[in-house]
Design a protein around this nucleic acid. Structure first.
Lengths: 170, 170
DNA sequence: TATTGTTATACTCTATAACTATA
DNA sequence: TATAGTTATAGAGTATAACAATA
């Protein structure tokens, strides 16, 4: 179809400069940016975003099964295995057998895991500062409130997100 | 979980429950979420987020070289080639030779490309509504203002983001 | 010699689907 | 029979680097 339809903003008329983006676009853009900055920071701890995510999740609710955790992280169980292996070999997490149902593992942080999580918290603070540098303390609170409302309404689980598509730091 | 072995709360004291996230974390979480919803919507147009991104970029500033565009999209030139091929074969964009420097192509939208961009605009509106459903009109404006300030201070180019890591819609 | 676009290739990542052990 | 974890494997996606044409 060459003749076409549609919108007039074509070859001739001034095409809307694809306005530079509404809230949704800015969220996507800033989200990717924040994720990238965070990935760079935690690379110093030899961690990737999904690894940091698992450590946080295990601190929040220890003893969960691999399948549950894999689901929360948005990865298939088969991928979770080598993913957890890496952290276990580094002594950051450990797999304990569940006595009641011996098919399941119960994953826990080790002392080393908790220690690293502590460092991670420090990094997160610096990261937050860097990202929010443009805003006053008050505005930061305002933004936080709005984002929380949106996140809740969208049905997102606090503290976890399945958006870490790649396992590599970047 | 039953026995709940060991301390649920870390080696000793209660570890901060990895608080559910500051501004930076929420941006990452919501950004990934918004990107996913958008990808699902434009799949109906047989487009992926980076493809939609290129169409927008070509509407905003036509005639740019492949290398420039590839850089903006965060992909190596070698990956841009088959990426552009797909859109060209669908008649959405066209490669014109640059008379001044014949090494370069000048990429442009075709009429079909403009038409599809029009449809895309409609989708974007619906997407914005869905993501901002929790907020009043006023709050939406407030959020938009805050996000723009952050984006600007972070040095992000309006309208483009390199965060589309994968070529597939998802 | 440097740069744009292209192709070739090797490598990583990923999902799917078998396989085991428990239930 | 169904489920958690694991392993194997084939396919897709990716970057690196060589190449051709132009500057």
């Amino acid at each position: 179809m060459t003749t076409n339809p549609g919108s007039a903003a074509g070859p001739q008329g001034a095409p809307r400069p694809a306005k530079h983006g509404g809230v949704a676009f800015l969220l996507a853009q800033l989200g990717a940016h924040a994720t990238e900055l965070f990935a760079q920071r935690i690379a110093a701890l030899d961690l990737t975003p999904p690894q940091a995510g698992l450590l946080r999740m295990l601190a929040a609710t220890p003893g969960r099964s691999q399948r549950e955790l894999a689901d929360d992280l948005g990865m298939p169980p088969s991928r979770f295995v080598p993913f957890a292996d890496g952290l276990e070999q580094r002594g950051l997490i450990e797999r304990r057998r569940n006595a009641e149902d011996r098919r399941l593992y119960a994953l826990h942080l080790t002392d080393q895991g908790f220690a690293l999580l502590g460092e991670l918290a420090g990094v997160a603070v610096a990261h937050e500062q860097q990202v929010c540098g443009a805003l006053s303390e008050q505005e930061r609170g305002q933004l936080l409130g709005l984002l929380r409302r949106v996140a809740e309404e969208q049905g997102l689980t606090p503290g976890v997100h399945t958006g870490f598509r790649s396992l590599r730091g970047k």
